[in-house]
């Protein structure tokens, strides 16, 4: 089911781009024109890395490198122009954020509002470990090794260790 919504055919209805994508080749692919690529392989790699951080605005969670939408293609060109001028990756991303806001970043910046998002890995782990430790602490008795009865039960369950 997931795949139905995937990728290429998902554009915002509102924009009318839908019309284009239904009538034009829906299943074109990312960089569909070799002339788009930068001649310097190092710069092309930098451009691809930047592109992977930028969201195709009219698609579902795809980067502009992965999208066939017209706007994604335009943005890819812009990225490559900036890279060719020797700008740093951060400069190119800042240029994009200035125009489209943080929506264009596939990895949101750490701010107070995204603290919970970025803190979730640590928070979840802490909650898990702290509650496990608390439950262990509450049990005063140190468990004995397996008793013979328990051992027999486990053997019966097919796990005799």
């Amino acid at each position: 089911m997931k795949a139905l919504f995937h990728g290429k055919q998902m554009f915002r209805l509102k924009t009318g781009l839908l019309l284009v994508c239904l009538s034009a080749p829906v299943m074109a692919w990312a960089v569909d024109d070799p002339s788009e690529m930068l001649p310097d392989p190092k710069q092309e790699r930098q451009a691809e890395a930047i592109g992977a951080q930028l969201r195709c605005l009219v698609c579902q969670n795809e980067s502009i490198e992965d999208s066939s939408a017209g706007l994604a293609r335009d943005l890819r060109k812009v990225v490559r122009e900036h890279v060719a001028r020797g700008e740093s990756s951060q400069q190119v991303i800042d240029w994009m954020v200035a125009r489209y806001g943080n929506f264009i970043r596939l990895s949101p910046p750490v701010t107070i509002a995204t603290l919970l998002l970025w803190g979730m890995p640590v928070l979840a782990l802490l909650i898990g470990i702290v509650s496990a430790v608390m439950i262990f602490r509450r049990r005063t008795a140190t468990p004995e090794p397996l008793s013979e009865a328990e051992r027999a039960r486990l053997r019966e369950l097919g796990d005799g260790r």
């Binding site: 915002r12 509102k14 924009t15 009318g16 009219v58 706007l71 943005l75 812009v78 125009r99 489209y100």
Partner: peptide, 15 residues
């Protein structure tokens, strides 16, 4: 024609 001015305006689609 190229849609480049639109990018400077932050346009993502029309209208």
């Amino acid at each position: 024609r190229e849609g480049r001015v639109a990018i400077d305006w932050g346009v993502s689609g029309v209208p």
